[in-house]
Write a protein that binds this DNA or RNA. Structure first.
Lengths: 108, 108
DNA sequence: ATTTTGCATCGCAATATTACGATGATATAT
DNA sequence: ATATATCATCGTAATATTGCGATGCAAAAT
């Protein structure tokens, strides 16, 4: 079908999947790296740093905003994006929690 | 277009995106949680735990194998899946590295 | 008032993903 | 040999994602 049956999974798994989507495309990884290091903030600077059109970058920024991991504050005519600290830490803890589940005791 | 221009991004960003894809669907998160906790290992048990058809689960397992984060060993007629420790740690370090980039000093 | 700047959104095209029934493959059990 | 059990793959359908040109919109500058 193409639609992920999100209603049959736990809230935690759905949120985790959404947070992972923020990192599931190289352009978004690049954007998040830049913002985390504060090497760029204004949308135009991000476009300059990335090998993608302005429209495409804007779309990735929209997706990151939807997830909540970044936020934008307007400074006309510019828009300055930055990491949303709370969601960033939520993601850090979510991944940390899953990675911590694994205990290395061979099974197969 | 629909094809991610992976050739224009760094190896690191592409790999990071691939590792994130392992967690970018609730079913795969559920599978990885189960395997990390070793609550299930045989494919059939995973199918029992998940609200998806056997074919769909098998497809997610294939994707996880492609990324390398799990591996399967045949035990006819069963197949036992488990976390690939090396790739699991690679992912842990990759995410840890990105999360560590962020230093909270408000910019906008 | 018109132009320019910076960014969002629309519309389109192409590819990718998700899901499942049906079928195939393989090895054990009868 | 046939049946059963387990899992992979094929084929198909529906939806999602990726990318970009063109356009829209708001505020500043001229």
């Amino acid at each position: 079908m193409g639609l992920s049956k999100s209603e049959v999974f736990s809230e935690a798994d759905n949120r985790m999947a959404d947070l992972a989507k923020a990192f599931a495309h190289p352009a978004r990884v690049a954007i998040l790296r830049l913002l985390a290091q504060r090497k760029a903030c204004v949308c135009g600077d991000l476009v300059d740093e990335l090998p993608l059109s302005q429209a495409t970058v804007s779309q990735h920024l929209k997706e990151l905003k939807r997830i909540g991991i970044i936020q934008g504050s307007i400074d006309p005519p510019r828009v300055c994006y930055c990491i949303n600290e709370q969601v960033w830490e939520e993601a850090e803890e979510a991944f940390g929690g899953v990675f911590a589940l694994f205990s290395k005791v061979g099974c197969c």
